[in-house]
């Protein structure tokens, strides 16, 4: 592509990005509006700026311990991410590289399991977790989350798109499977693994039904359940909901930026960056 073409594309992409982000900007601005002004399309920029919503959300420590929920969310999401990445990369390696017998069929079952509507699992899972005495503990949110098929499917497909030649060479050099996995395959798939990490982290962070149904004590909630305290079945406390959601999403954005830097660096270190 010519230099001019690339510059044009760059401009275009910035425009698209602006379109995508503007609703988020609107949300941010609206969280600083007093409740009487929130739904008014005539004043996108607040006429009156207020910190009321944030003060309320952060100040109600007794029943809405925001800091505690933040901690819970971080703990659950990082644990889930760690376990999913570890288990999924091992499974994908086993299927695509070690070519374990039955691997292909197993992948088929895993992908098929993704087609069963998740709502169906809720009651059996609740009863299982209850027998395990895991309800109202973080284990209920962490362990079952590692069973999802998304990560295995994704990493399998990524590994399939990377030529096997490099790994074969390493094997011929006398490297063990474990060595190949740790020193060759993982670095080769670093962008994919980091991407999976982000997805898992976000998915776990935003999970609503799980914490709601499996947690009984307010202090064991995660952030999304906290946000929902300002939405009733009949109306929404817009200002408070948006303020909580801004507060709940900011850590996620920070995590994403950290991951993104890591993707870029890992690509630089494996020499894949163009």
């Amino acid at each position: 592509m010519t230099k001019l073409g690339r510059n044009l594309v760059t401009g275009l992409m910035f425009l698209v990005a602006f379109l995508f982000v503007s609703p988020v900007g609107l949300m941010l601005v609206t969280s600083f509006k007093p409740e009487s002004e929130v739904l008014n399309p005539e004043s996108v920029i607040p006429r009156v700026w207020t910190l009321f919503n944030y003060r309320h959300v952060l100040g109600w420590a007794e029943e809405a311990p925001f800091g505690r929920w933040l901690l819970n969310s971080f703990f659950v999401s990082s644990s889930v991410t760690l376990l999913v990445v570890a288990l999924a990369s091992m499974a994908a390696f086993g299927i695509t590289r070690v070519k374990a017998p039955g691997g292909g069929a197993f992948l088929g079952v895993v992908v098929a399991s993704m087609m069963v509507p998740g709502q169906l699992f809720l009651v059996p899972l609740y009863l299982m977790l209850s027998r395990l005495h895991w309800l109202d503990t973080p284990a209920a949110l962490i362990v079952p989350a590692t069973a999802g098929g998304f990560g295995v499917f994704m990493l399998t497909q990524f590994m399939r798109s990377v030529p096997e030649a490099i790994e074969e060479a390493a094997l011929l050099d006398g490297c063990s499977w474990l060595g190949v996995f740790l020193h060759v395959s993982l670095p080769l798939c670093a962008p994919a693994i980091a991407t999976l990490g982000i997805f898992t982290f976000i998915g776990s962070w935003n999970d609503f039904l799980g914490p709601l149904v499996f947690m009984d004590s307010v202090r064991n909630y995660t952030l999304p359940v906290g946000i929902a305290l300002y939405q009733t079945s009949y109306y929404t406390e817009y200002g408070l909901t948006l303020a909580t959601s801004v507060l709940a999403t900011t850590p996620l954005i920070l995590v994403f930026m950290a991951y993104q830097r890591q993707i870029v660096e890992s690509m630089a270190s494996t020499g894949l960056k163009d």
């Binding site: 073409g5 594309v9 954005i253 993104q260």
Partner: peptide, 23 residues
């Protein structure tokens, strides 16, 4: 194909998906 600002644009495109679907 972007010449500059790729990481910024990627982050911005990704931003909406970080919000809870309820919000």
């Amino acid at each position: 194909a972007m010449t500059t600002g790729r990481n910024t644009v990627r982050a911005l495109l990704f931003l909406p998906g970080m919000f809870n679907v309820a919000v």
